[in-house]
Every structure is written in C-alpha cells, then in structure tokens.
Simulated assay, not measured.
Amino acid sequence: MSSKRKQQICELLKGIETGDPASVEVVNEAKYIQHNPHTQEGSIGLAELFQRLSLSNPRVNIVRVFEDGDFIFAHTEYDFSSSKIGFEIFRFENDQAVEHWDNIQPRRGPNPSKHSMVDGETKAVDLNKTEPNRLIVHSFIDEVLIKGRLNTLDHYIDGSNYTEHNPSMSDDLSALKASLSQPGSNGITYKKNHRLLAEGSFVLSVSEGYLNGVHSSFYDLFRVVDDMIVEHWDTTEAVPPRAEWKNDNGKF
C-alpha cells in the first residue's frame, strides 16, 4: 500500500478506535458530501460520530484497500458493540476527501463452504487489466443480476475455481441461481448499478434493489482472473426511510 491517499483513509478509519478528531482532518469540510444517511455533513459530523463510537471500545481492521483515480475504496471489519463488515468509498480532490459512501451489515457466517465475509485474497494484481475487468463485471451485473439471464452465469463465473464469501451461500453456484430466481418479494432483485470502481483484479459494484421486498443497497466486490470472476464478497444494507436521513444527499 504505497498511495498517500490510501494511507490517509486508513488513518481516518482507525480514528474510530480513538475518537481523535485529528483523524478527520483529511476531510474537506467545506466540500464534503456525506451519503451515509445516518451521519451529518462535514468533518464535524464525522468527529462526533467517531467520538461516540469510541465509547464502545471499537476495533477497526482494514482488510483491503484499493485506488481508482480519485476514489479510494476499502473493505473493513468493525467490532463495535457487535461485529460488522463494511465497504467504504471516498472521493478525493487533491489531498482531501470530499465525498463518502458506505455499506455496512452485521457479520454472519462462516458460510456453508467455511469462508468468512472477509477472508481470501487481498492484493490487487494484473493492474494493466483494470479496465477489461471493470467491463466484465459491468456486463455481469447488467446481464445476470439486473436482467436475470441466469443461463449466462457460466460465461462470467469460473464455477470450478469459485470462492463465495456471502454468509448464506456456498461456492456452488446453485445457491446464487436459486436466490436470483425467487420472486422479487422473496429473493434478491437488482434494479440499478450506480458505480463500478476497480484496481487490477478487484472490482467493486454499488447497486440498488430489493432484498425480500426491502429497498436495499448492494455492494459486491469481485476478483477477476483470466477474464472470469473467481471470488466474491458483499454487504447488503436496507436503505432507511427518507424521514430518518440526517443529510439530503441520498444513499447512492
């Protein structure tokens, strides 16, 4: 991890452990756009959040961190009063973060294949294939997850070498097919992809849809090798009702 911006974000997230307001100095308060609907705008909102969280003696582990242009995205473990797994996205202008998105869910698992929500490969390779890998995941999200063309699943996922980290599923693709085949009120429905961030072999997708009829945000991290998806991690979070938002920027 050589990027200055990556280091800045790691220091920011580790500030949750101490509640130190200095950890949020990387945030440009005048420009900062907060998309976590439970957090107020600006570094003051973050400082207050970090100070409150620090009272529960939290632990933060940054498992993976990647860079895509002006974006830093990280895969994290949080141990507050309970254990949670999250994805964090920050957009930079120069040396300061000016926009933030995240998606956090309670830790569950291990799954039927004995994988946790965060273990597996951590280092991005094949940096020269960042854009081709982004396009592969874009096509997979559009064709399989949004349009539901499950007969093309094998075109994208190497089933013989696939590792699944979703706590409810196994490496066998039958569980994924079954979940995507359920009616909208009983399974997973992807409606729109909002963002794809990539560094080498890793691609993070930010999508919107429904889980068992509940309006939800889906963050999916894929590892791509030789033009096939070989590993997957995710978090799902319900989008709160508009009346509960503490800012006006929306989840996406």
Rank of each mutant, 00 (worst) to 15 (best):
L55Q: 15
G120R: 04
R223P: 07
H115G: 00
S56D: 15
H155L: 15
V24Y: 04
S201G: 11
L49I: 07
T39H: 15
N94D: 15
A47W: 04
S82P: 12
F140D: 05
S201K: 10
L197Y: 03
P112G: 00
F202L: 03
R5W: 01
S170F: 04
L13V: 09
D227C: 04
F222I: 07
L55H: 14
H165T: 05
N133W: 05
I33W: 03
N186S: 13
L49W: 06
S83R: 14
D70N: 11
S43G: 14
P110E: 05
I89T: 07
D20H: 12
N57H: 13
K177E: 14
M228I: 04
H165W: 05
T163E: 10
S116R: 06
S168D: 14
Y219K: 04
S113C: 08
Y190H: 13
F218L: 03
H38C: 11
R195F: 01
T163M: 10
V65L: 07
E143A: 12
W101V: 07
R91L: 11
T235C: 02
R149H: 15
P240G: 02
V230E: 04
H115D: 02
S43R: 13
D20T: 09
R195G: 03
T122N: 02
E17L: 01
S82Y: 14
N133I: 03
E93D: 09
D20Y: 05
A238K: 00
E67H: 00
E77M: 13
G19L: 02
F90R: 12
D171F: 02
S113D: 00
V26S: 06
E77R: 14
N28G: 04
G19W: 04
D70G: 11
N111E: 02
K84S: 12
S139I: 07
D171Q: 00
S170E: 00
A175Q: 12
S43C: 08
G148W: 06
D95K: 06
I141V: 14
T152E: 13
N249W: 06
D227M: 02
G213V: 04
G86Q: 09
I146N: 03
K129T: 03
E93M: 12
R59T: 15
P132I: 08
I146F: 08
F252I: 04
K177L: 13
I136K: 08
H165K: 01
E164P: 00
V63R: 11
K31Q: 15
L49K: 11
L150I: 10
F92W: 04
E25N: 11
F73D: 09
V144G: 08
E29G: 14
S170K: 01
S160T: 12
A47L: 06
K251W: 03
F222Q: 06
S43V: 04
K192Q: 14
A74I: 06
G42T: 05
S3N: 10
E121A: 13
M228F: 10
R91F: 12
R91P: 03
I44M: 12
V203D: 09
N28F: 08
